[in-house]
């Protein structure tokens, strides 16, 4: 599904990613772990197409296609979704209209008609139930005044509604208490199937107890310096990052 080959990227002239190689197949969950500042969010943003980040070398092949020339929204329509570390507040735009607009754009891409309101509400209610979200969220402005945990839940709600092929999760566990973490993780697990994939970027091992990865990669200074199975996450938790450095 995703093939990252020798990827170099800069932000504001500073080189952050220095030759990333990574391959993700359908049905897999990959975790990228690494200390603060190692470039995890940068990788997620580069994949989603943020134009502050410039790819200087290498390529990203998604579903057999080089996505270098695709804009952010085109990548989203192709099926790449980024759950943000810091979701943005959009006052005056309700969750309802935001989600409906987004869903219809993605349906348009897949040659589907606009969803009718009833069908949309049924879908939304179903997904909100999975995340134990209150009805009031439908009419609230996107993320405005939401607590950290509510914002993260809202990200996963969008994930469940838009059903992308590849979900990039950037520190989805940060700011969550244990109950919220379980709910959010469950949301991600509901999303998972054999045709899609998850790339979870995280500082801590905690999330990976609930979203169990098939592969764990350690990112340090813009490079993947070690890859392994889910046990690697536990090892990192125990020993910290220092033991692999050098």
């Amino acid at each position: 599904m995703l093939k990252i080959k020798n990827l170099y990227a800069t932000v504001e002239g500073k080189e952050i990613l220095k030759g990333i190689n990574l391959e993700i197949q359908e049905g897999e969950v990959h975790a990228i772990m690494g200390p603060n500042g190692s470039g995890k969010s940068t990788l997620a943003n580069v994949l989603a197409g943020h134009n502050n980040y410039k790819v200087t070398q290498g390529e990203i092949i998604f579903e057999g296609k080089n996505i270098f020339d695709l804009s952010v929204e085109e990548r989203a329509k192709e099926g790449i979704f980024l759950a943000f570390q810091y979701p943005v507040e959009i006052p005056g735009v309700t969750n309802y209209s935001f989600l409906k607009t987004a869903l219809n754009e993605i349906r348009k891409q897949n040659n589907l008609e606009e969803i009718d309101s009833k069908e949309f509400m049924d879908l939304l209610n179903k997904k909100m139930k999975i995340l134990d979200m209150d009805d009031v969220f439908i009419q609230r402005s996107v993320n405005q005044g939401f607590s950290g945990g509510e914002k993260k839940r809202n990200e996963i709600l969008q994930l469940l509604m838009l059903e992308p092929k590849l979900a990039l999760l950037d520190e989805t566990d940060s700011g969550l208490d244990i109950d919220a973490l379980k709910i959010v993780s469950n949301g991600v697990n509901v999303f998972r199937n054999k045709n899609n994939a998850v790339l979870a970027v995280t500082h801590y091992q905690r999330l990976l107890n609930y979203i169990v990865p098939d592969f764990v990669h350690v990112l340090s200074k813009g490079r993947i310096i070690k890859s392994g199975g889910k046990e690697l996450a536990l090892e990192l938790e125990e020993k910290g990052y220092d033991w692999i450095k050098g």
Binding site: A48, G49, H50, N51, S71, V72, E73, R75, A76, K77, F81, L82, F84, P87, V88, I90, F98, T101, A102, E105, I106, Q109, Q158, L162
Partner: peptide
């Protein structure tokens, strides 16, 4: 970026 990353055009 946030809005566009949901497939919503510019």
């Amino acid at each position: 970026f946030y809005i566009k990353s949901r497939g919503i055009p510019e």
